[in-house]
């Protein structure tokens, strides 16, 4: 119940924020941060709760991104059809990858490697065929109107992405109290013990990856609407794959608020780095990498683990 209240407070506070006249820069900053909190939640469901570490979530992101853009540019359909198609495409790609990987029992490092390899295959294909615009990419013509899912101000996408993020928080909250979630966590902790208790491991993992594929593709689709452009590197490069796992790990794997906390921390950190050290290429990401090592080394439970730990300590101190 406390979790639900926290989600409600967060959603409300963020929703009314545009009324206080934030700058465009701030809105863009928050929108991207929220988007990665949302995409990170996708990684968190499979990786944090389910223990299946994907190194290639960008394959779903990119599938959604390409499908939305392609339906508009190549087939002349509207963005709404594009969103629906993106959702389906993400689920289908996830189903195919999940079916193959889990049917043949790939776990741990092998699963990480195969997801990485699939992302690479998609990148090369996108780079080589005509319908994706090959290496040059594709551009959606600018024509702002709600029907086109393009907005003049920054608030439009801010609210949409906020809604997605709040939805993903609710999803994680609901997951923790559902059979599906209980099974997923059991699989993470001990597959054999779970099987002995009647858990269908293959089906549970497959459901999880399809859910993650669909939600990540939807995120990719909105990303496409925001920037109206796609190329193989944006869609299937390594950066999205790395960032979604990073926000979950930094924030706290297998927790409702982990990805949000992680996204907030990472985006703030990279902004501060940009302010103090200037816009130098590489330094930002080098910091991310160092942070990943440090987190795994010293705070394997993430910021959320640290926060709840110190909260408990404070409470204890206050009681005594």
């Amino acid at each position: 119940m406390r979790t639900l209240a926290a989600i409600a407070v967060f959603g409300f506070a963020m929703a009314v924020l545009p009324a206080f006249g934030p700058t465009d820069f701030m809105l863009s900053f928050l929108t991207l941060m929220l988007l990665f909190a949302y995409l990170g939640q996708g990684w968190n469901i499979l990786g944090g709760y389910g223990g299946q570490f994907s190194f290639g979530n960008t394959v779903f992101f990119g599938a959604g991104l390409y499908v939305t853009v392609i339906t508009q540019v190549q087939f002349g359909l509207g963005p709404w059809a594009g969103l629906a198609a993106a959702l389906l495409a993400g689920a289908a790609v996830a189903f195919a990858i999940g079916w193959l990987s889990f049917r043949y029992g790939l776990r741990g490092s092998y699963f990480a490697l195969i997801t990485l390899a699939f992302a690479e295959v998609f990148r090369i294909v996108a780079n080589s065929i005509a319908i994706t615009g090959a290496g040059a990419g594709l551009q959606v013509p600018l024509d702002p109107s709600p029907a086109n899912l393009q907005f003049v101000g920054r608030e439009g996408f801010y609210w949409i992405i906020l809604a997605l993020t709040v939805g993903s928080l609710l999803l994680a909250w609901q997951l923790e109290r559902s059979r599906f979630g209980v099974y997923l966590i059991a699989i993470r902790d001990d597959e054999d013990a779970a099987r002995a208790l009647g858990v269908d491991i293959f089906r549970t993992k497959l459901r999880a990856i399809v859910l993650v594929g669909a939600m990540t593709a939807l995120g990719g689709a909105f990303y496409g609407q925001m920037f109206l452009y796609v190329d193989p590197h944006i869609a299937f490069g390594v950066s999205v794959s790395v960032e979604v796992l990073l926000v979950s790990i930094v924030g706290g794997m297998g927790t409702v608020f982990g990805p949000l906390l992680g996204a907030a921390a990472l985006h703030t950190l990279s902004e501060v780095a940009r302010e103090t050290m200037g816009d130098t290429p590489g330094l930002n990401l080098a910091l991310y990498g160092a942070l990943l090592v440090v987190m795994v080394m010293f705070l394997p439970k993430g910021l959320f683990g640290l926060a709840s730990f110190s909260a408990r300590r404070l409470l204890k101190g206050w009681r005594s």
Partner: peptide
């Protein structure tokens, strides 16, 4: 195993397999 379990045959493990990082309640819930 999960289908046999569904039919009503369940085993325990000699080397017990608790879901160590979860509470007793969460373990039994599975």
């Amino acid at each position: 195993p999960h289908e046999i379990c569904r039919l009503g045959l369940v085993r325990t493990f000699q080397v017990v397999k608790p879901f160590a990082e979860q509470s007793v309640r969460e373990n039994i819930l599975v």
